[in-house]
Amino acid sequence: MRDVSRETSARLNVFAELLVKWNARINLVSPRDIEHLWPRHIEDSLQLAPMIPQGSRVIDLGSGGGFPGIIVGIASDAEMVLVESDRRKAAFLREAARECGVKAQVLAQRIETLDLDPAPFVTARALAPLRVLLGWTAPLLSPNGVALFLKGKNLAGELTDAEADWHMSHTILNSRTDGQGAIIKVSDIRRVE
C-alpha cells in the first residue's frame, strides 16, 4: 500500500471492515474478491488520491461499493459527490462516509438525470466504456477540470471508439496495482462537430 498516514490507514481499515459486513447482505464486491479487497479495490482506488488536491470537490460516478469515491474522500479529504442509482448501495455509501469521516453527498439517482454544478474532478472505476463516460462527464466537469478513470486492459480500444465522438486531451498512466490496468486523465472534453 502506498504511504498513508496512520489516521488514513485507520479510516481505511474501518471502511474495509464495514464493507465486509455489508457485503454479506448486498453485493458490493464479488465474494471471491473479499480476500483481495486491499490490493484489488482499496489500493487501486488510492492511486487517484495524489492527483486530487486536498479538499477538492469531486463527483464520483457509479460509486457502488465506494471505489474510488470513499477511498479518495478518506485519502484526500475531498468533498465528494457520490452518484449511485442502487438505493441499497447508496445506503452503504452514506454509512461508510459517516463511519469514515468522509465529507460526502450521496445521490441515489441515475447519472443521466443529474443536475449538478460542475466540479474540478470527476472519477469513475469499472463503470462504462470511455465513449459513454465522456458523455456523462462532459456536463459535470469544470472548464479546467480533470476526469480520472481507472480502466482495464481494453483501454486502447475504448479510446479509439471514443475518439469518433469526442475531442479530448488525455494522458495514460500505468496502474501500480494491475499489470493490465491504467488510469486515464482526461480534460478539454468536447463533442466532435
Rank of each mutant, 00 (worst) to 15 (best):
G179Q: 13
L28Q: 01
V14H: 03
D117I: 05
R6A: 11
M1A: 12
R40E: 01
L148Y: 04
L173Q: 10
T8P: 00
A97F: 05
R190Q: 15
L133N: 01
A104S: 03
A119M: 07
P118F: 07
F92G: 06
N174W: 00
L37F: 07
S76Q: 00
F121E: 04
I183W: 12
R131M: 13
H36S: 03
S187P: 00
R57D: 01
F67W: 12
D60H: 11
E84Q: 01
W38K: 08
G64Q: 06
I52E: 02
V20T: 14
P31L: 05
R40G: 02
G66T: 09
D161V: 14
G55V: 11
E84P: 01
G64D: 02
S5T: 13
L130I: 07
S142A: 11
S56Q: 11
L148V: 08
L12R: 03
A138M: 13
L12S: 00
S142W: 00
I71D: 06
G179N: 13
K89L: 00
G101W: 04
A156N: 00
T8L: 01
N174Y: 05
A49Q: 10
P31Y: 12
H167K: 11
L130C: 08
H167Y: 13
V146N: 00
R94E: 15
G135D: 10
Q109N: 01
L140V: 04
G145P: 00
P50V: 13
Q180C: 07
P120A: 10
N23L: 11
G55R: 03
E99S: 15
L82R: 06
I70P: 02
H41D: 07
A10M: 05
K151S: 09
L93R: 02
G135E: 13
A10D: 11
I52Y: 03
A78H: 06
K89Q: 04
L12A: 14
L93V: 11
L155T: 07
R6E: 13
I59A: 05
L48P: 02
D33C: 07
I183C: 10
K103Y: 02
M80Y: 05
F67T: 13
T160A: 15
E79T: 05
S5H: 03
A91F: 04
H41K: 06
R25S: 14
A164R: 15
L150V: 10
V132L: 12
S9P: 06
M80S: 15
L12Q: 02
V58F: 10
W136A: 06
G62Q: 01
V106N: 06
R98G: 10
V81G: 04
N144P: 00
D86I: 13
W22F: 07
V146P: 00
L134A: 08
D3N: 07
D33S: 04
L116G: 08
A124F: 09
D117Q: 15
R6T: 08
R110W: 14
I172E: 10
V81C: 12
M51H: 14
N144R: 11
I184S: 01
A182G: 08
V122H: 06
L61G: 07
V102R: 02
R94D: 13
V14C: 02
L127D: 06
N174V: 06
I172W: 00
L173I: 15
L61H: 04
A119R: 02
D161C: 06
E112M: 11
I42A: 07
A164H: 14
V20Q: 09
N23Q: 03
V29C: 09
M51Q: 11
N27S: 08
